[in-house]
């Protein structure tokens, strides 16, 4: 079996478990939806319709959602020492990172879809370049996932990991959040060149953190 097939198997297993126990995804969707609903109250209706403000709050909500989903995913692995069973399989350590990132990205894609539609409808946002918006959202999600998975793995055996993961992850996520916010705002307001440029930066982040994760996670997992 190839490494890619193993990654696919881990991701498929992860999504099956998430489908049966969707507490992580439900918590993430609820969190994003509440933030979008409260946005007008917090910043005022006119500011909330500003594409940059709306995009920034959307991506901050998505970053927290990613942390919630990833931590729930690893909690499930720790419940009955299931992680050990995966790690001792041949190629298990290497497949773990890729599989978790793929599954997290897929789940976040769903959360982003719900949050995005809510934002567009409730805040009456402009949608000048829909294809570019989708591109930025997809690449933004792909850029968030590896960072969050690496941070959860690094904090996996720590007692205070629920507090530590956000503290570790959020500063590292700032460049991705800024890029995703700027890219989404540009796509919403019709600046195709800027949207594509920020998308390229997001892709670069995804590749860099993907390589970092593939290097660190197999060695760090215990």
């Amino acid at each position: 079996m190839t490494g890619l097939a193993r990654v696919g198997l881990v991701a498929s297993r992860e999504l099956s478990a998430e489908r049966r126990q969707p507490d992580g995804a439900v918590a993430a969707v609820t969190f994003v939806a509440v933030l979008v609903l409260l946005e007008s109250l917090v910043v005022g209706p006119s500011r909330a319709r500003d594409a940059t403000v709306a995009a920034a709050l959307f991506w901050i909500a998505l970053a927290f959602a990613a942390i919630v989903v990833a931590m729930r995913s690893f909690d499930r692995e720790l419940d009955d020492d299931a992680l050990d069973a995966l790690v001792v399989l041949p190629g298990g350590r290497d497949a773990l990172f890729g599989g978790k990132v793929l599954a997290l990205a897929a789940t976040l894609g769903l959360v982003a879809l719900v949050g995005g539609v809510l934002s567009l409808v409730l805040l009456d946002l402009p949608l000048a370049l829909p294809v570019h918006v989708v591109l930025v959202v997809v690449l933004g999600v792909v850029a968030l996932a590896p960072v969050v998975v690496v941070d959860v793995v690094l904090a996996l055996r720590l007692r205070a990991r629920a507090a530590l993961v956000p503290i570790l992850a959020l500063p590292v996520l700032v460049p991705q959040l800024v890029s995703a916010t700027q890219g989404a705002a540009a796509a919403l307001t019709g600046d195709a060149t800027a949207a594509l440029a920020w998308s390229g930066i997001l892709l670069a982040f995804a590749l860099v953190y993907g390589v970092v994760g593939l290097t660190i996670v197999p060695a760090a997992i215990e």
Binding site: M1, R6, L9, R13, S16, A17, E18, R20, Q21, R76, E77, D79, D80, D81, A82, D84, A85, V88, L89, P90, G91, G92, A95
Partner: peptide, 25 residues
């Protein structure tokens, strides 16, 4: 390796867990 705990992933059935391990190998 089968440790103190069953090492099966919650959320999946017994069949799905064992099928995963076999296919992974």
């Amino acid at each position: 390796y089968i440790g103190h705990r069953p090492m099966l992933l919650h959320g999946l059935t017994a069949r799905e867990n064992l099928t995963f391990f076999a296919r992974f190998r």
